[in-house]
Design a protein around this nucleic acid. Structure first.
Length: 572
DNA sequence: GCCGTTTTCGGCCCGACTGTTTTCAGTCG
């Protein structure tokens, strides 16, 4: 079984090696394209191949790449990549992640000195040998030496929630400067991607060079990388890269569109423009060298014959076709949520009493919440036993009397799915729960087939309401479990079990691609905070972000229903 | 390597910044 990620990685690696080899850059691009297509697809390529689907039907994949992908799926290997690896040392690929070194210069260094590792490169740079190459001046050499040191930092991505405050602080800082009219944070931040590589800030200002000067004096700036007439780049203390770009009013929409990306989406838009005899760049849309649009994003889309596409959808995952066929989703909003069905109280590892949580939920405008504390096995999280949960339910009954007409508290639990797929409570307890969130908290590395069986057994348990954090991943810490989601989706639909979008900023599973797949299969989702304190009830905004990236509408999410409607959907 | 209501050949997204030269290549996003 090859995942889309694994296939994409092999194709991208091939592209890197071909590039160092000095292959036709358009061929290299074709491999990169293919990698991106596979990576971004909402379909499993492994399945597509095994079902005999004609891959050449996908734009960007032709006869050759189709065969190569089949080879990778069927054998787990790619002969072209194997050959290239023999030919080109891994050290050269490592060099690509040095700032300022691309394929051309790496090849130049390799051809001249036979350098095959970062160690060797360092020696040549320090000894002054490297200066002899044409185009290698003292500044570039200094940059390379610095790049070798900072190599590890390259490629780190921050959680969206981690940069949220930084981004907003920067926005405020820039708005304070005289003559600054608009500050917008574009890039993957605006697309609400779960992780963000850098911040792209767009400003409309009277006197950009002055703004740039002000920008690089921001107290958190550690290093100024470049400062030009329309762009500047800095690194903050925590390593985050921030790009500032200046535009005029007339180009604001085109620039916002351009810098919001994604790259794949932009390329598609430009291709469409070309087919219409137009040109799109960050300054506007041009026909016969005459500017016909650029002030707003709506205008840009309209000029190329499209409707406005929400930033979260701009990943070239079918949004352009959907727009043409007038079937773009009407994305869910935070205000659509009427309750939260996964909250921990101080009965297990939460910080607050149920009453405190209920009051906060009323403040948030919710009609209902579910208190779902951990079950027995999870001792590290103060998991509850039978006696304790019964006591808790008595308290919930009392509170429901007290808050009648204001909020309804569901009696629930987050019950462990044991290794064999059975649950960590007996029926006597489960039947007293109105909401049963079943979740895996250990043995994350079972083989795909066993893990899938484990989850499906839980889905088929008549007491289970929801599978919580279904992939078990923790961003930057733990890989997702190996699961056959196609099967899980169809079992979830069959059994009327909901799948959770967990809003913890480092979980956010299901992820965007899986959400889209789930919706296409008719799965009902639930967006929960998994809050352990009052403040993190607000985490649902991250869950909403992820849902929107997965083309999620209000109708796909059960906690947008009224209390009455929801109760009608739950098991007796 | 992909693609085709001008095409099976000859294009392929587009511009800014840097460092090196002195008009441009390489890199980056």
């Amino acid at each position: 079984m090859m995942t889309n990620g694994e296939i994409a990685k092999m194709l991208a690696m091939t592209a890197d090696l071909l590039e160092i080899k000095g292959e036709n850059p358009f061929k290299v691009r074709a491999y990169r394209n293919a990698a991106r297509i596979v990576e971004n697809s909402s379909k499993d390529f492994d399945k597509l191949v095994k079902e005999g689907f004609d891959l050449t039907r996908l734009p960007g994949i032709g006869k050759d790449l189709s065969e190569y992908i089949k080879e990778i799926v069927n054998t787990g290997k790619f002969h072209k990549l194997e050959e290239l690896k023999k030919e080109i040392p891994q050290g050269l690929v490592d060099m690509l992640s040095i700032e300022g070194l691309g394929p051309k210069r790496v090849k130049q260094i390799y051809d001249a000195f036979g350098v095959t590792s970062l160690e060797e490169l360092k020696k040549y740079a320090q000894s002054g040998e490297l200066d002899k190459l044409p185009g290698f001046g003292p500044k570039l050499i200094e940059k390379i030496l610095k790049g070798i040191k900072q190599l590890k930092k390259a490629g780190i991505r921050f959680l969206w929630a981690e940069v949220e405050d930084i981004a907003e602080d920067l926005r405020e800082y820039l708005l304070k400067f005289e003559g600054v009219e608009i500050v917008e944070i574009a890039g993957s931040y605006r697309r609400k991607k779960e992780t963000v590589g850098d911040l792209d800030i767009l400003v409309v200002a009277k006197d950009y060079p002055k703004v740039s000067e002000y920008f690089i004096k921001y107290p958190e700036v550690k290093e100024v990388h470049s400062a030009g007439l329309t762009r500047s780049t800095v690194f903050l203390q925590n390593g985050l890269q921030v790009d500032l770009r200046a535009v005029s009013h007339e180009s604001y929409g085109a620039a916002l569109h351009y810098f919001t990306g994604s790259k794949a989406h932009n390329i598609e838009i430009r291709k469409i423009a070309i087919s219409l005899g137009m040109k799109v760049n960050e300054y506007g849309v041009y026909k016969d060298d005459k500017k016909i649009a650029g002030e707003s994003e709506e205008e840009v889309y309209k000029a190329v014959g499209l409707c406005y596409i929400e930033p979260e959808l701009r990943e070239n995952r079918g949004e352009i076709e959907a727009c043409r066929e007038n079937r773009l989703p009407k994305l869910i909003k935070r205000e659509d949520l009427r309750g939260d069905l996964h909250i921990h109280s101080n009965y297990s590892d939460g910080a607050n009493t149920i009453e405190e949580i209920a009051k906060k939920a009323i403040e948030l405008g919710y009609e209902y919440i579910a208190i779902t504390d951990h079950s027995k096995r999870l001792k590290v999280a103060n998991g509850m036993d039978e006696k304790k949960i019964l006591r808790q339910f008595e308290e919930i009954d009392r509170l429901n009397e007290k808050f009648k007409g204001k909020i309804y508290i569901f009696k629930g639990c987050e019950v462990d799915i044991l290794e064999d797929g059975s649950l960590d409570y007996d029926e006597e307890i489960l039947e007293k729960c109105e909401i049963v969130n079943a979740a895996i908290h250990y043995k994350f590395d079972l083989p795909r087939e066993l893990q899938t069986k484990r989850v499906i057994k839980a889905i088929n348990n008549p007491f289970v309401t929801t599978i919580s954090h279904p992939t078990g991943r923790i961003l930057h810490k733990r890989e997702e479990m190996s699961l056959d989601f196609e099967l899980i989706f169809s079992e979830a639909v069959k059994n009327g079990v909901f799948l959770e979008i967990n809003s913890q900023p480092d979980r956010l599973d299901l992820n965007d691609v899986l959400i889209k797949q789930a919706i296409e299969k008719g799965v009902k989702l639930v967006i929960n905070s998994d809050a352990h304190n009052l403040k993190s009830l607000n985490f649902v905004k991250y869950g909403i972000n992820q849902a929107r990236r997965g083309w999620c509408e209000k109708k796909n999410v059960i906690n947008t229903l009224s209390l009455k409607e929801l109760k009608g959907m739950l098991r007796e």
